[in-house]
Design a protein around this nucleic acid. Structure first.
Lengths: 125, 125
DNA sequence: CAAACATATGAGCATTTATTCACATGTTCG
DNA sequence: CGAACATGTGAATAAATGCTCATATGTTTG
C-alpha cells in the first residue's frame, strides 16, 4: 500500500504527467518575488500578528506614549511591553525618542496605519 | 533594593503620580477597539506571518492552483501545503473549489492583494 | 465495486515565541 | 556623587506553531 508512494515525495511526480500543470508551475514560479523579500514580508506581518503588539500600535494611533503608560494601559508588566516594543522597533513600525527619564514611543510611518486599516476592513468585511 | 518594588506591579503606580498621564491613559483606553476585534486582527496578520503562506498567496496572485501544483512550486510536501491552506482558509484569505479530483485554490478577495501590497511598500520603503 | 488519484487531518516532534524574573543601563536631582 | 526613577535585556519556562508521517476522506475510472 506504500510501495510506489515514494514517487510522491515533494509532489514532483504528482498530477499525473500533465505538462500543462508543469508549465503553469514554471510560469508562476518565474513571477515569484525573490526569497529575501518573501522572508522580510513574513517577518513584517509577524510583527502585526500578536494581540499585545496590535494593542500597542492602536494606542500609538492616538498618542505618543511612554513605556510605563503603555504598561498601565495594557495592564501588563513594563518588561513585557519593553520586549514587544523592541520587536516593533526591529520591524521599523515604531520609534522611540528620549524625553528626560522617559522614552516616548511613536509610530514610525503611515504604512502602519494603512496596513492595519486594510486588515480591519477585512475582518469587518 | 526590592522592598517597595511591589508597587510597580503592572505599572499601576508608575510615572509618579502625574495625573496628566493617568488622564492620557484613560483617554487612549477609551479609544481602543473592542477586545475581539483586536484579537481577530492579530489572527489575520498571523496568517500573513509565515514564509510558506506568503509564498502560497503570491502564487495565487498569478493563477488559481491546485494543492499538488502548489506543493511542486514550493518544493514542499502536499501535506504541509494542505495544512497551511487550511489556516489561510480559516483566515478567509483563500477559498477552494472542487474540479474533478482536484481542489483549486484561489484568493478570497482583493483585501489580500491590498494588504500584501502595503506590506511590500513598507519593506521596500 | 475496486483501484488509483487528490486532498485533508490527527498525533508527534522540534522550533519559535510571549511572558516573567532578576538585574543592567541610563537619566535626573538633591 | 548617590539615590530614585524609567527603560532595556538575558535566561528560563510554558504555550503556540510548522512540518512529517501515517492514514482517512472523497472523486474518478475501469
Amino acid at each position: 500500500m506504500k510501495n510506489e508512494k515514494t514517487v510522491m515525495l515533494h509532489g514532483i511526480e504528482c498530477c499525473e504527467e500533465q505538462e500543462i500543470h508543469t508549465d503553469k508551475v514554471r510560469q508562476v514560479s518565474d513571477l515569484m518575488p525573490p526569497e529575501d523579500q518573501l522572508y522580510d514580508l513574513a517577518e513584517l506581518f509577524k510583527a502585526f500578528g500578536d494581540t499585545t503588539r496590535i494593542r500597542i500600535l492602536f494606542a500609538l494611533f492616538e498618542a505618543d506614549i511612554c513605556v510605563c503608560d503603555l504598561a498601565e494601559l495594557l495592564h501588563m508588566t513594563q518588561s513585557a511591553v519593553s520586549h514587544q516594543l523592541r520587536l516593533l522597533k526591529q520591524a521599523r513600525l515604531v520609534n522611540g525618542r528620549r524625553e528626560g527619564k522617559q522614552i516616548i514611543y511613536y509610530l514610525a510611518d503611515d504604512h502602519v496605519r494603512t496596513i492595519i486599516e486594510k486588515g480591519m476592513e477585512h475582518i469587518l468585511e
